[in-house]
Design a protein around this nucleic acid. Sequence first.
RNA 1: CGGGGUGUGGCGAAGCUUGGUAUCGCGCAUGGUUCGGGACCAUGAGGCCGUGGGUUCGAAUCCCACCACUCCGACCA
Length: 478
Amino acid sequence: MAKDKKVERITDMDADFAQWYTDVVTRAELIDYSGVKGFYVLRPYGYAIWENIQAELDRRFKETGHENVSMPLLIPESLLQKEKDHVEGFAPECAWVTYGGAEELEERLCIRPTSETLFCEHWARTVESWRDLPKLYNQWCSVLRWEKSTRPFLRHREFLWQEGHTLHATAEEAIEETERMLGVYAELCENYLAMPVTKGLKTDREKFAGAERTYTIECMMHDGKALQNGTSHYFGDGFARAFGITFSDKNNTLQYPHETSWGYATRSIGGVIMTHGDNSGLVLPPGVAPVQAVVVPVASHKPGVLERARELCETLKRAGLRAKTDESDNSPGWKFAEHEMRGVPVRLELGPRDIEGGKCVAVRRADGAKIEIPLEGAAEGVRAILKEAHGIMFARAKARLDENTRVASSLDEVKSIIAEKGGFIVTPWCGDEACEIRMKEDAGVTSRCIPFGQERVGDVCPACGRTADKTVVWGVAY
RNA sequence: CGGGGUGUGGCGAAGCUUGGUAUCGCGCAUGGUUCGGGACCAUGAGGCCGUGGGUUCGAAUCCCACCACUCCGACCA
C-alpha cells in the first residue's frame, strides 16, 4: 500500500539526530528559513505552540503579581556600558544601529540583547521610596544576539522570549523571587511540556553576565545532550549601584534595592521536539499542542460521515478542547501519517462502521494505542486519553533522564561515560574553576548545574583530587 | 571565526567532466473515479539554474568573489 519512494521521509533519528531535528522542524511546518542567517519564520503551527506556552506563563506571572510592560528596542551604547560585567558578556553579540535615515548617529544604538539596562534606567528615574517597591515587571518581546552558529529554535539571532525584571527592598525578598520564578518555569516544563527538569545553580563560570547567582533548569534531550530551558538571576544590588537606583527606607535612609531577572524563550520548543519526537515526527505534549485532537473522517463521501465528524469536533470544542476536522481530500492513510508527523496527541477515526456502532477509534500519538471511545461523551474520553498521553510522555522522559544520569569518581570515568554513553554525569567538585576548565578540555563536558538538594556522591574532586564539598551535574550542552 | 558538504520550479534529484538556453519524480491547479495506514486517471500551470563579476559568438556547465543552508570544532549571556 505504501509507496515509500514517493513519501517525504524524515531521517532516522538514531542515524543522524541533527538531520532528524531539521527534518521535523521544517516538514511539520514549524519553521521556515529567511534570507538572513539565524532569523527564522515561525509558521502558524510553530507560533501556535509558542502562544500556548505564552498563555500559560503569562497567567502564572500575573498570579504571582507581575505586570507586563514594553521597553524600547534600542539601547544607547553609554547605557549598556554602565555595568562592567554585563557589557563584557554581551558586547561580542551586539548588533548596532548607526544610521537614522541618511544621517550617521552621534551615539550608536544597540539592538537589545536583553533589557536589564533599560529597566535600570527607568527605575533610576521612577523609584524613590520603599513604598515604590517591589517592582514586578515582565515583557514579551524579541531580542537580538549575533550568534555565530544558529539552529532553528535552539539558537536564533533574533528570538522571542519573555524577560521578567524585578526590584526589591531586600536581598532575601529578591532571592525568594528568583527561586519562585525558577519554580514557575519548572512547573510549566513538567506539567505542560512533560519535560522533567534538573533544577540548580550555575557555577560562576556559567552564570549570567552581571549576576550574583544564576539559577537554571536543565533538561535532557533524546540524544543525551543538555538544554538549558529557562533561567533566573539574582543580581544583588550591583546593577542598582551601577545605575544609581536608590530608595528611602522607612527610617529615611537611602538604600540600594536588589534586582532579579528571568527569561524563557522559544528555545523551549526545540526542547519539546528533541525530548518527545520520534521517527514518525513530532510528538506534542497535550498541554501546548495547537491541535489536541484531529478528527479524520473515513469514507467521507458516504452520506452522514462528514456531518458526524463535524459534530464530533464541535462536541470537543464545546468541552474546551483544541480540536479540528481534517476535511481535505487526501486519503485517510495520508492524513494519519501527516497528523502523526505534526505530533497531534490524539487522532479520532470516524467511518461508517464507527457511526453504526456509536463510537470512534482514538489513536494516541505518544504510544500508538488504539482505543475505542463512545461518541456519547466523547470529550471525556478524549480528555482522559490526553491526560494519559502526558503521563506516558513524562514517564518516558523521566526514565531516560534517570537511566542516562551516571555518577563518576574519576576524570577517566567521566571521559569514558561521555564517549560511550553521553547523558548527564554527576561528580563531586572542589569548587575551583580550573577543575571546571579541565573537565571541559579533557572530557568535553561543561557544568550544567549545582543541583538543589545536594546528594553527596563522593568526597574527592575528579579533576584535582582535592576534597570536594559540592556535587555538580555535567553534560554536553546545546 | 576555522574545516568539510550543499545550492537547478514548492520538495527531492539528473544535467556540469566534454559550454549550444533545462529533464524526471513528488507536490500544486482543474475535472473525474476513490477512501479503515501516505489511492488513481486525464489535462494544465510553474524555473532570473543562490547572487555578482569574468572568459566566450554563446555559460546551469569554465574562472573569481560573495551569500545562504548544513555538519564538525571554537564561542555562546
